[in-house]
Amino acid sequence: MSVPQPQDGTPILELRGVDKHFGAIQVLHGVDLKVYPGQVTALVGDNGAGKSTLIKSIAGIHPIDGGQLLFEGKPVTVTGPRDSAALGIEVVYQDLALADNLDVVQNMFLGRERTKGILLDEASMEQAARDTLAKLSVRTLKSVRQLVSSLSGGQRQTVAIAKAVLWESKVVILDEPTAALGVAQTRQVLDLVRRLADTGHAVVFISHNMVDVFEVSDRIAALYLGRMAADVPISEVDRTRVVELITTGRSGDLGIEPAAVAEVGA
């Protein structure tokens, strides 16, 4: 189902030994992660494993305390959301952050409106929004001038993702995009996630649902209590092993050293 990608290519985004602590509590311990263009990297882990902290670190909301962030092979510093946006990293949060009282086009361009003089350039914005949605083969919206309040959960997720794509983003991070959706809507969103990667984006996909993960992902990164247990191509693991990695941090030859597990568990 996935497009074959050279595994030896340079990752567009790479984390090396990233540490993060809040006060005395260390949340991330030397986390390594590689994200490749054209691939979906699933980020999995139990509640409290540090998934949200990790993406917020990448997004600049919680800047990292130690380690390195490399973008296109070059070390970068991200100290705020604007830095990550400037690099081409877009995060689609679980609560979506759409304004219900605005329409699809207005939401997609929120904060970055196109203008002609002091006038909003509605025609050009609507055109660009349409083009982006068409590029992602979104067929579920009746009108791009529909208010977001009238959209279903899946359609909202679609708009939020399309919004991220509109900004020539290279890395799109999706925080549990299917968590609150029904079967058909999950289907739509998964298709869209796949198309994102197929159009050359590097996608980081956070999910608790193993079925979804195995359906769309090319690589899988499992966090266990703030440590990266494994970051491997999906072909190297199966569902049982991933669940093991999530719950114990180890599975066969993969995972954190038993000593480290014991230390973390203590």
Binding site: A99, N101, L102, Q106, L110, T115
Partner: peptide
């Protein structure tokens, strides 16, 4: 105008507006 659009956005979802910069 952009100002007007932002007024609606803040009223509709001020957190979304903030995250949108």
């Amino acid at each position: 105008t952009t100002f007007g659009r932002h007024v609606y956005a803040v009223g509709g979802n001020s957190e979304a507006a903030r995250r949108a910069g």
